[in-house]
């Protein structure tokens, strides 16, 4: 069911609202697992890397080390939580088979996708907000551009929610939902310029880093807050929007073909 049904737009909206409410309720219900851990982890990052080690590192690109890493750490929590929320929720629904509640209903595929992505975006932005509030205790953050900051963090949350959805569709066991975050997402995030400037790297590694899409998102977000970036802003937007388009098309294709859902 991928089509759009104008005659049922009201019902479609109710279905979307229901799914978004269900997903939001899920991560709020288990707040001790979903919202508290990133707050604690990111506080430790600020204390250890920002405060203790950062005081000896000195300024970076004209900003204190704490100011420099704050946007990256916020972005890291958004990426991780948006992805994890969707992959664990969708796989959980498959595992418990209550995904069938949606599949037997007339809810269109794009609503199913939008509902899960909205849940991921909600949790990503919520934890991002928590981490931002924590960051203000450690660094004097003055936002350079609110539209850029908000648009980049929102689009990044959408993109990684889509990534979590695709992972959830293919996952057959719990190991499958941990592999991508552990072996791909975390290394790419750490190597995405969260803790360092691209200008610090030798030429070869700097060029190699340009193949890491997370670098663009972290830098675009840093530009939104500090007004400084290692990469052109337009390139970051094109990349993020390109990935979102491809991820959306692929996700809808998977739903239409019932991959991992219908036998």
């Amino acid at each position: 069911m991928a089509g759009f049904y104008p005659a049922y737009s009201r019902q479609t909206l109710i279905a979307l609202r229901t799914l978004v409410g269900k997903e939001t309720h899920r991560y709020l219900r288990i707040w001790l697992q979903t919202l508290v851990p990133p707050a604690i982890t990111m506080t430790l990052y600020f204390v250890i890397f920002g405060s203790l080690i950062g005081s000896r590192v000195g300024p970076m690109d004209g900003f204190s080390f704490m100011e420099f890493i704050a946007p990256g750490i916020i972005m890291m929590s958004v990426i991780t939580n948006a992805y994890t929320n969707v992959v664990s929720s969708f796989f959980g629904a498959k595992f418990q088979r209550h995904i069938e509640e949606l599949l037997v209903s007339p809810t269109p595929n794009y609503v199913i996708l939008a509902g899960y992505v909205a849940g991921g975006v909600g949790r990503g932005l919520f934890t991002g907000l928590i981490v931002t509030i924590i960051a203000t205790f450690f660094a004097d953050l003055k936002i350079h551009s609110i539209p850029i900051t908000i648009s980049v963090v929102f689009l990044t949350a959408v993109l990684f929610s889509l990534g979590g959805f695709i992972n959830g569709v293919f996952a057959r066991k719990f190991d499958d939902i941990a592999i991508v975050p552990t072996f791909i997402l975390t290394p790419l995030t750490y190597l995405g310029g969260v803790f360092y400037s691209l200008s610090m790297l030798p030429d070869f590694w700097a060029r190699l880093s340009m193949a890491n899409p997370i670098l663009y998102m972290v830098n675009a977000f840093r530009y939104g807050i500090l007004g400084q970036s290692d990469i052109p802003l337009a390139t970051a937007y094109i990349l993020i929007l390109g990935f979102i388009t491809a991820g959306t098309a692929f996700s809808l294709w998977l739903l239409r073909h019932g991959t991992g859902l219908r036998s």
């Binding site: 109710i14 279905a15 309720h25």
Partner: peptide, 13 residues
Amino acid sequence: QIVLNQAGFYGVE
């Protein structure tokens, strides 16, 4: 929650 969510998926007010 289970029955109300299911109603929502069918577009029931």
